[in-house]
Design a protein around this nucleic acid. Structure first.
Length: 533
DNA sequence: GTAGGGTTAG
């Protein structure tokens, strides 16, 4: 049955042919096929897998598209395919498609399948059509607790408290979901005494039971009672934390929000969002932005990638601007394949997206790719800017291609009229310096039209360390120390000390190291980052 | 391998 092919089952073949004329989906529910839903599959099992995986990733429209396309394949939709498709219809929600699939259920003779029938009950419950949901439910030859819970959910959703209560009492074997539906149902209806009563009677409470009570109290504005529950519960989920943080946020208790947020170990994306939103809602924009930056820093852009999956989950369509931001993100994470994929999916590639790609190639050592992209971009009549050149120079630097890099640097000014910034100089100094061309690097610095920053002098200093050049190293270190605040200069001093050591000037090395040590000891008491200074 | 609840950021 599951693996049935039309050719093996002629009677179904006929039916299937007729049903195919239904041409799902139709009416107002026309769904654009995405690449994921455009493939074809060799057997019924693969079709079902594809439909289910789309559904599991929240791509319900893809799932439905696939189901529709399965009609054109040599395979008859199985109970597995049908229940997956019904689930997608329930989640979208898609009434017309759902009803059409309901018709197919009869054509294919799945009236006795408990999975398909339960999916139908759930579909109509979610569509708010309790008349049909009840009819399907009543006609089921066999029901299990999932079927009962589905109709129970429908009555709660329809606001029919009495029917819900009656259904609950009739459920032969209740499970946690049955109980939690009652708790959450009464809580949402604002009847906390009833919610509490069910909560107390429930035999094996889980996190959701507690969360239901917490959200009920919050809804009533009783944050203290919610907090009491939160403190008493044996284990908390992300939802518990986020609910409490945002409850405090809504009543302006920013510090209480933050206190909970700080207690949260292994913060998930939701906790960060809730805290950032708390600042935003309470007019603390600076803190909101700072925390957002902190979120991106924590865990190596891990959350940046989560943001992407989050957006696709809640169905935010990626426009070119967002895609470009993600190109940049992936490129900087080293996932150049993903960056390329997104870049190629752009409806129009512009200066910003090209530059993001070139920069990514530069960071990840893909010189020829960077050059290729640059040429393509210029061919498309786009004018590169300072960022584009930073990417390209980074690429040359990564590959140690000194002459090509230097040529690129000259053409920047002469051909493209982009004045080089200190950052560009820093890259070229690094490029020259690392290959031992220290004098050239030094004269480049002296010829600079913009003021060299520590990046420039630091690049020279590092090169002097590599090649053991004391004379230029001293000059570079001197500038670095001058430009940097006292607390951050010790790194440069140590570097200079290492240069002395590498040429055998042990006394000078020792002297500098002691200097750094004394400085760090002296400033420790005042070294506060708590904003006291 | 199929079907159900929790909902918090927005």
């Amino acid at each position: 049955m599951i693996f049935s092919r039309r050719s093996n089952l002629p009677s179904i073949k006929e039916t299937a042919h007729r049903v195919n004329q239904l041409a799902l989906p139709h009416g107002g529910e026309r769904y654009r096929s995405t690449p994921a839903a455009a493939q074809s599959y060799p057997d019924a099992f693969s079709w079902v897998s594809a439909i289910r995986s789309s559904s599991q990733n929240g791509r319900f429209k893809d799932a439905l598209c696939l189901y529709t396309r399965m009609q054109g394949s040599p395979f008859v939709p199985t109970t597995f395919a049908i229940s997956a498709a019904l689930k997608a219809c329930a989640r979208i929600p898609a009434k017309v498609s759902g009803t059409a699939i309901h018709a197919q259920v009869h054509k294919f003779g799945h009236e006795r399948d408990v999975y398909v029938q339960t999916a139908l009950v759930d579909l109509y419950s979610k569509l708010g059509d309790m008349g049909i949901a009840r009819k399907v439910f009543d006609e089921m030859p066999a029901r299990n607790v999932v079927s009962w819970n589905s109709i129970l959910f429908g009555f709660w959703r329809a606001g029919d408290l009495l029917a819900a209560r009656r259904v609950f009492d009739e459920i032969p074997v209740k499970d946690a979901i049955s109980w939690n539906s009652m708790i959450a149902g009464y809580a949402k209806a604002g009847d906390m005494p009833q919610a509490e009563s069910f909560f107390r009677q429930m035999p094996h409470k889980n996190v959701a039971s507690w969360n239901g009570m917490i959200s009920g109290y919050i809804l009533k504005g009783n944050v203290a009672a919610a907090r009491k529950m939160f403190d008493e519960m044996p284990e908390r989920s992300n939802v518990s934390w986020i609910e409490m943080i945002s409850a405090y946020a809504k009543c302006g208790a920013v510090h209480s929000s933050r206190e909970l947020f700080d207690q949260r170990e292994d913060k998930d994306l939701g906790s960060w969002n809730a805290m950032i939103a708390c600042y935003a809602q309470n007019s603390w924009p600076k803190e909101a932005i700072l925390l957002f930056g902190e979120m991106l820093e924590t865990g190596d852009l891990k959350y940046g990638l989560e943001v992407e999956s989050y957006m696709s989950r809640i169905g935010i369509e990626l426009d070119d601007h967002l895609r470009t931001a993600l190109v940049d993100l992936h490129a900087k994470c080293g996932s150049m394949d993903k960056a390329y994929k997104l870049f190629n999916s752009l409806s129009r590639r512009d200066l910003v997206s090209y530059s993001a790609m070139i920069m990514g190639c530069g960071i990840n050592g893909r010189v020829s790719d960077a050059i290729h992209l640059f040429d393509k971009m210029v061919n498309e009549k786009m004018s590169p800017n300072a960022i584009t050149f930073t990417g390209l120079l980074t690429a040359y630097n990564h590959a140690g291609m000194v002459d090509e890099g230097y040529q690129c640097f000259s053409s920047m000014m002469n051909v493209y009229r982009v004045p080089p910034s200190a950052d560009h100089y820093a890259i070229v100094v690094d490029l020259l310096g690392r290959t031992g061309r220290l004098e050239e690097a030094m004269s480049l610095i002296t010829s600079m039209t913009v003021k060299p920053h520590t990046g420039v002098w630091g690049a020279l200093l590092l090169s002097c360390k590599i090649h053991g050049n004391v004379e230029l190293g001293e000059i570079a270190a001197k500038h670095c120390i001058e430009l940097e605040t006292e607390s951050e200069s010790s790194g440069y001093i140590i570097l200079l000390a290492n240069i002395y050591a590498s040429v055998g000037r042990w006394d000078d090395a020792k002297r500098l190291r002691r200097e750094v040590e004394e400085k760090s000891l002296a400033k420790t008491p005042g070294c506060s980052w708590l904003g006291l200074g």
